[in-house]
Write a protein that binds this DNA or RNA. Structure first.
Lengths: 174, 174, 174, 174
DNA sequence: AGCTAAGCGAGACGGTACGTCCAGTCTTTCG
DNA sequence: CGAAAGACTGGACGTACCGTCTCGCTTAGCT
């Protein structure tokens, strides 16, 4: 019944936030600047996201399309598809940096956690469906390895690695 | 001729920093508070560490216990020992929070990265030695799964999980 | 031809405004709160009064009846009647506070000035009529003394003072 | 033992505050601008005065000139001197505006009141001494008339008026 | 009876200050 | 020179409140 929120503002803010994040990471996103840049009042930002952190979470979530569960007929090929997609997503340094910030922020703020978790949800769903086992640690092994190389080991992530990882996981270590 | 530095201050600062980090992570460590709490001038802190980040790095480095490579005669038992150790280390929420902060900070600041990496080095070395293969993704699968559950999936980490993870990794998924 | 304004809203708004003003003065009157409290839209307030200041002026004016020029047959008694009335009006601290705000606001905003001036007009008219002299500073002396004690000197204002003031003014100082 | 406060900053801040107040009254004094203008961090201002209001109070207190009690041998001439001085002080519109703001603010904040009262103190003292009567309403009549014309009646204040006012006050109305 | 202009509740919006928080640097005095 | 104390710069954050705007709905009164 009241004046509806301007959905263009939502989009503009998210877009601007994403741009800032990509360019210089978390610290490059200044709420004041962002608002000024897109011609919106700071209050309009804070009405939508109570905190810079919340905005960051949304910005990332927004730039992430849904992931379709692959269906190549082969479990291995399907797994490779999913893992490769994630690996290539997490390879660029700016992305690693931001994902790391998000992971940290999601430990601090429960609200944010939900949004960040949602980021990976479709990938998890696709994987669970393929594995057909709700308990198997295989999901952790595959996704974990990718995150681990991105955030902890600082190693390269590409299609070759993804393939090797899936192969190793399916075959077992000795 | 000049007054020597008070080495007790070094220790006190590191200890206080570690305490803060454990309790609330990176953001809970405020240089001002820390100095006041232990009765030291802020300058005394900054004379030793040029930056909060450097201090954090030192604090972490100081508390990293060396991990002895186990030798039970069985590869699986050895792996379970290492993985269980890490899993139990990363189970408590405050630790997760802080590790997440460190991971994020280490993406921001290259200097910090080296120190944070050093934190896990002895575990990596032990694992590499057991695996006897510098390229195998198995290390990523094991450590990655543990970090993943701690930081991304927010799931429990205990000895049972560690054992199941090792078993799954060695046996292979199907 | 169009829907008429709801006159009950006028009254409710004025009443609520007066209450706020009495309780905590100018700063205690928040248009948002006021509207919410009485279940009226902010626009309904602003349709009637273009500004918080205008509303404040009306609120005060509304609670102030017209002042009848007294006619006791004696100039002194008439003057005492008028001055006592004003003095007793301006004695309570909340009123002083608000009058002070109005005086200040009327310096800022010419529009408001007219309304605030109107507040005192009937008293000025009555006085002028009694004095029968458009130039005499006596009006300033009488009204001025009362305002001065209320706003600048922070001294008591009661019937006794009013009588003494009139006496002194008529008699002259020495 | 610690670094002492920079007393020049105190003075510079007060001077800048006074300038702002004179130019446009209370609302023209913006803490941010002020700090920027004199090359000081906002925190340096807030370290000294917890609030804009406190700063305003100090600024006013700092600029109050002492008034010497005149001694011409004639009561009337002495009174005219004092009243003329005040009248000419309060004639310019910007001053009226600011005085009105101060009067209002001093009703709001007790701390401020003391400082604002001090502004007029030496004039009151001089007047009391001349009148030689602690109770006489004559002081209220004279000062009150001037303030009244400045703040309520919006009428001219000059030496002629001051003389007429003193004459009227001494002679009595009728 | 329907059309229309305005009132209304709800709340978004632009704008502008305010006061707070912290990192890192600088300055003073003492030992 | 080292250390304690704390002032200082600098810059972002989130809050508060004003006055305007835009919805969708309601209510006269004119045709």
């Amino acid at each position: 019944m009241a004046r509806p929120r301007n959905t263009e503002s939502d989009a503009a803010i998210l877009a601007a936030a994403a741009t800032s994040l990509r360019s210089g990471g978390y610290d490059a996103l200044l709420v004041d600047d962002l608002a000024k840049r897109i011609g919106v009042a700071k209050t309009t930002v804070y009405r939508r996201w109570p905190t810079k952190n919340h905005l960051v979470a949304s910005a990332i979530a927004s730039w992430q399309g849904e992931v379709e569960p692959p269906d190549t007929g082969s479990l291995e090929r399907d797994l490779v598809a999913i893992v490769t997609d994630l690996a290539e997503l997490l390879d660029p340094a700016p992305i690693r940096r931001m994902v790391a910030e998000l992971v940290a922020a999601s430990q601090r703020e429960p609200e944010l956690r939900r949004q960040v978790d949602a980021l990976w949800q479709s990938r998890r769903d696709a994987m669970r469906q393929l594995l057909n086992d709700d308990e198997s640690p295989v999901l952790d092994q595959l996704f974990g390895a990718v995150f681990y190389r991105a955030l902890v080991a600082h190693e390269k992530l590409d299609a070759d690695y993804a393939a090797a990882l899936v192969r190793s996981t399916l075959a077992g270590g000795r």
